[in-house]
Structure formats: structure tokens, C-alpha cells
Design a protein around this nucleic acid. Structure first.
Lengths: 363, 363
DNA sequence: TTGTAGGCGTTATCAC
DNA sequence: GTGATAACGCCTACAA
């Protein structure tokens, strides 16, 4: 019989370490050692203990261990409340790769959604300050902060992914958006394009700033004016990519001096944009070239197949976890603040030289 | 100074309940009550305690509470290792809706991946038997089971989603796949189609069985033979939907007696299939009608826009959580074993009457 | 190499 | 209404 002073009514829980110890005829502490530190215990005792544990189907209680050692073994990933999930599979890929990498390090993954409400911030801070999690990977631009508490001073190892938060002191894993877009734009210029349409996500978002800068840099390098690019969008979230594309198609239709190339900042917007302008009678890439962003597999099956800049999510997830693990295990060692993974342009048939150049080939 | 007998070196942790008690000038137990059970404590004391807690930035330690009450407040979602993430956004939507619903009930969401390896099964069982999680939502057809332990007898409230596991005693939330496909097929028959191509996911998978049965039922009801449908695929995972579609296009090309309608069991396969057969010169829906499955938003922007059967993920997630909460809070009450949410066919331009019927309209 | 014992931070019971 | 106190299950410093 167990004692039951000060305890609530309880359904039967599984076997305890004490049960294993009794069956193996040793002290509890020996069981603990045998399980956690097999080297520090006699081989024969260890075998007896293992057998007993297996026989009872013993599983250590994670919360008791966590409380005792003052460390949890779960990591939280903070996803923006308005989660972007388009054709790009970014989120599932991130989750998959992070979870896999964490598992190999003995950690679990917990999901937290960061909305615009104080409630979701409070929840995340509870997770952080309540010792539930041991570290965080954040995919949102804002650090949770509400009534005095802030993730920034939770003493919680935190890594940012996709967005550069190194300014806020958070080590970040990002892609070279700007460079990739600059190169893609330079390619278009090289093909003869001189007038561009840029499809923007939410204005002033890190990605928008980076990617648009890439366009502008390419124009400057080619001696072209910034006025060579027309911006569309800026008021909708990436989540509404399809709507951005539709709006951009309207904008395009209304332009007197038509661009010959479009640069979309997500595959969603590229796809709906392309669909709509084709329906308007425009031919692609003949009448308009399109380059897009995200590297969604489905782009290969658009008509025409869509050129797109791929983001190596698998690699980014692995690196984020590696940096996080280092931050946990060796806190004294200052991590690299900005970690860049290279994007790759996947070239497909949505890009060609502009028609006027093909027609009168004298440039 | 804190005592430190038998304890490892420790970095400073946050304020404790004892600190709040000291600052408020009450006993620890009163603080505990004030925070968890505000009604059972004097209004003025409660206010003093709240103020003290806020001032110190106190956050209760979740593991200590969990250990004490013998219950955790996290739920795990078990995702298949070969995670299907195509254009359909099924997984992100599921996660989003489940997480949101759990949050409202005060629970956290933990991710677990169930691969084909014993290691991942062991990990999940550790979570279950180690008291880390309070319940599980499983999206995989196999219940983790390894060396004696099985999720089936972990005493862990478990709900299946997408797949019907009611046979295994697991309450399930599913869509009416079969019925939806039957109706869609009946529509095609009604339009005049008499010969069909069926694009299958992995053979004998629950979804494949259900959906193909739907096709066969419709044929039978119309007095047509089962030989009216040709199956393609069956050897690849849904994850490789694009490849299934490409293979189906080859199969289609090789058929002497061409089907006039195709039924795809995921949007991915429909999209790559359509892309490939169009490239072969086939016109859609003129030469071939296509109906697909998943309801991916991108289908609206295919050319032609793709008819697809939508799965209401949001609703399914909410129901799964509702049932899980009931299973946790009222274990004596037997839950409904099979919970069906209706799918909806989104009709678009990829479906039309077969050409021969349009041409000689005498049937 | 093994056993003893104290305590991680919280909550529930019991007594006042 | 409030305070003292004993657990929850495990780990580790220390003694043997």
C-alpha cells in the first residue's frame, strides 16, 4: 500500500523506479544510475536492473526528472499566428527538419503560435518562464513581450529562422534573399528586359525589404533607374498570396508602359498572377517573363513551368537546431549572429528574352 | 542563501512561489490557492498576492505542478514519418486548427513523428508512458508498439484523425471520402462518361480503399461494370503525388481504349497528370475530364481550374480536440467511435461532358 | 560499487 | 480563511 497523505485521488500510474529497484533487489539510486549512467554500475547489477525494468515496462517519468535536474528537454517553435502556408510547403518542411534534428539530440518539439493578441504572447512567455521549454526557435519577427516579461530576458536560448533578428541579439538563420533576387534580376536584364513588375508581400517586412533591395541593386549595377520597376501589392500578408497575384494582374493591365518581366516574392502570387494574365490573353514567357520565390515543387507543373528561387528549408532547420544546441550546451561561447544559407534559382520556361528583342534583333 | 544538499550546480532560476509568499507576507500554500483557486481566498490577500507575483514576474513551474498533480497539459500529435505535404496544406491546417483548439482548453501541442523505425516508436511510447503527454491525436495508421509497450494500453486518451481506426478501438474523425467520390463519379457518369482512369495512392491504404470503393459503387449504381475504371499507381506514397501523376500520364498514353474522365486521389497527382497530358496534346476538359481530391486553393489557378473534393480540416481538428477533451475529462463516458465530417466537391472547369457526346448529341 | 537521504517547486490535506 | 506539512518521482552529493 502506498501512503497517501496530502495527495489527490489518483488513477493507477505506471511502475516506478522503486518498483524496479525492489524487483532487482537494489536501491533506487542504483537503478537511477544504471539507467542514466550505465558505466558507473556493475555489469551484472545493470543487467539485472535492465531485465527488471523491461519486465515491468518501466518508463521514467519525464516531469519528475525535469523538475529534479531543473531542465526540460523540449524546444518550442514559435510560428506566426497568420501562418503562411501556400503551395510552398515551407512550414511542413521546417517542422519536419527541425523535429528530426531535435530528436537526434534528445529533444522534443512543441508548437506555439504567436498571434497579435496578448493572450498568445502570455502563453509563450509562460512556456519560457515556467521551465516547460529549454530553448526556442522563432519564425516571427516580434519577440513576445507582455506585462513586464519578455522573451528577450527569459534567459532562454533562442534562434530566429527565416527572419534576420540579429539586430535584436537573436542569432538568425536566413537565406541570401537579396543576393538571389539581385542575380535573378540581373539575368533578366541581361536577357534584354528593361521594365519590371515587382509583386510585394507586406511592406517593410524583412523579406520585402531584402528582396526589393535585390531588384534595385541589380538595376543600379546595370545603370538603370529605380523607376524601371513598378511595385504592386504591399498591403496583404504572404498568406494571401493568391490575392496579391490577382491584384497585381489588375495593376499590370492598367499600366500604360507594360513591364516585360515580373518578379514575384512568393510562388502563390506568381501562380495566380500568371493564371490571370494568361486569361487576359498574354503569353508567357513571350509577352511577359516571370521569376518567383519559394521553390515550390508544383512550379514544375505550371504552364509554362515557373522559374523560382528555392529556399533550402531542410538545411536551414538543421543549422538552426545546431546553433540552438550549441547555445544550450556551451552558453559561454558566443554564436555567429547571422548565418546565411544560399538560395538557388531553379530556371524554367517562364523566363525568356522580351519579344521586341526577338522580333528586331538589333540591340 | 539556499541550501544545496544533494543538488547539482545550478544557474539561477526565476522567482519561486516562496518568494511571492514572502513578499506578500503569507504562506506558500495561500499563494498556491490564490493563483489556482482565487475564490477560496480573501479578496484583499488575493490582491496582495497578485501584486507581489506581478512585481516579481512570477511564473509557476509547469513541471513541478505536473509532477505534483500527476497530469501534464500537453497533447501530442503523431504524424506519419513520410509526412504528406503537397499543395494541399493539409498538415499545416491540421496543426493550426488543433493547436488553436487545444490552447483554448489550456493545453500545449507537441509534435511526434512516427517513422518505420523502432526508435521513433520508442520515443513516442516514452512520451506516452513517461507522463509527458496527457493525450494523443494520431494521423498515422499504425499504433506505436515496441518491446512490450503499446500505445493501445498506455491508458492514454487517443483520437485518430483522417484515418478510421475505430476498429482498433480508437475514436476517429474522418471525412466521407467514399461518398464524396461516389457522388463525384456519379456526376461524371451523368455527364456521359463511361470509361475512367483512377489515380491511386498507396494501395490498401485506408483512403485508397475508401475512395476506390466510391468509384465502384457509383459504377454499380449506374449499371456499369467495374471494368469501366482503369487503375493507375498504387505503389507510391501520397507524398510522391507528382510522380504518381506523371506515371499515370504514361499509363494513359499507353491505353488503347482511352478513358474520358480521370479521378485523382490527391491534387498533386492531378496537377502533374494534367500538365503532362496537356503537353501530350490532350485538351482538358474537352478530351478528358479531371476530378481531384484535397481542395487545395491552388486548384483555382490551374488551367483549366481543377474540380476537387475539399476536406474541411479546420472542422476536423476542432472535432478531434473536442472528443479528446471529453475523453480526458469524462473517461467513463464512451465516445462516438466514428465521427464523419462531410467533404464538399468544388466544381470547376476541369469537368465537362465527353467530346463524343457533344459532337453527336443523340444519346 | 552501492546505499542513504535530501530536495527540485508545487499542490492537497489537515488542523487551526 | 490561512498556515504547516507531506508527498509527487527522480537524481546526486556523500558516506559506506
Amino acid at each position: 500500500m502506498r501512503k497517501n497523505k496530502g495527495m489527490p485521488m489518483e488513477e493507477q500510474s505506471g511502475p516506478l523506479m522503486a518498483d524496479v529497484a525492489r524487483l532487482a533487489g537494489v536501491a533506487i539510486s542504483t537503478v537511477s544510475r544504471a539507467l542514466a549512467n550505465p558505466g558507473r554500475v556493475n555489469e551484472k547489477t545493470r543487467a539485472r536492473i535492465d531485465a527488471a525494468a523491461k519486465k515491468l515496462g518501466y518508463t521514467p517519468n519525464a516531469m519528475a526528472r525535469g523538475l529534479r535536474v531543473g531542465k526540460s528537454n523540449t524546444i518550442m517553435i514559435i510560428l506566426p499566428g497568420s501562418l503562411y502556408y501556400g503551395v510552398s510547403q515551407v512550414i511542413p518542411q521546417v517542422l519536419q527538419s527541425i523535429n528530426k534534428a531535435l530528436l537526434q539530440n534528445g529533444y522534443n518539439l512543441m508548437i506555439a503560435n504567436l498571434g497579435r493578441d496578448a493572450e498568445s504572447e502570455r502563453h509563450i512567455l509562460d512556456l519560457a518562464f515556467g521551465g516547460t521549454v529549454r530553448g526556442a526557435i522563432i519564425l516571427s519577427s516580434k519577440l513576445p513581450e507582455v506585462d513586464g516579461r519578455s522573451l528577450a530576458n527569459a534567459g532562454l536560448p533562442t534562434i530566429s529562422m527565416l527572419l534576420d533578428m540579429s539586430d535584436a541579439g537573436v542569432p538568425s538563420v536566413v537565406t541570401n534573399d537579396r543576393e538571389a533576387v539581385r542575380d535573378a534580376t540581373a539575368d533578366l536584364i541581361h536577357l534584354g528586359h528593361r521594365r519590371f513588375l515587382y509583386l510585394a508581400g507586406p511592406e517593410n517586412n524583412y523579406h520585402d525589404l531584402e528582396r526589393f533591395s535585390g531588384v534595385v541593386e541589380a538595376l543600379q549595377e546595370a545603370g538603370l533607374s529605380e523607376s524601371a520597376v513598378v511595385r504592386s501589392g504591399g498591403n496583404l500578408d504572404y498568406q494571401h498570396g493568391f490575392d496579391i497575384g490577382l491584384q497585381a494582374a489588375s495593376d499590370f493591365a492598367a499600366l500604360a508602359d507594360k513591364p516585360t518581366a515580373a518578379i514575384a516574392t512568393s510562388d502563390d502570387m506568381a501562380i495566380s498572377f500568371m493564371s490571370r494574365v494568361q486569361r487576359m490573353g498574354l503569353s508567357i514567357p513571350g509577352g511577359l517573363s516571370i521569376v518567383s520565390f519559394d521553390g515550390s515543387p508544383v512550379c514544375a507543373f505550371c504552364s509554362p513551368p515557373l522559374s523560382t528561387i528555392e529556399q533550402p528549408m531542410e538545411e536551414m532547420g538543421q543549422m538552426a537546431v545546431a546553433i540552438l544546441m550549441a547555445a544550450i550546451d556551451r552558453p559561454e561561447q558566443k554564436p555567429e549572429m547571422r548565418n546565411v544559407i544560399r538560395s538557388r534559382l531553379i530556371q524554367r520556361e517562364s523566363v525568356a528574352a522580351p519579344v521586341w528583342l526577338l522580333a528586331n534583333n538589333f540591340n
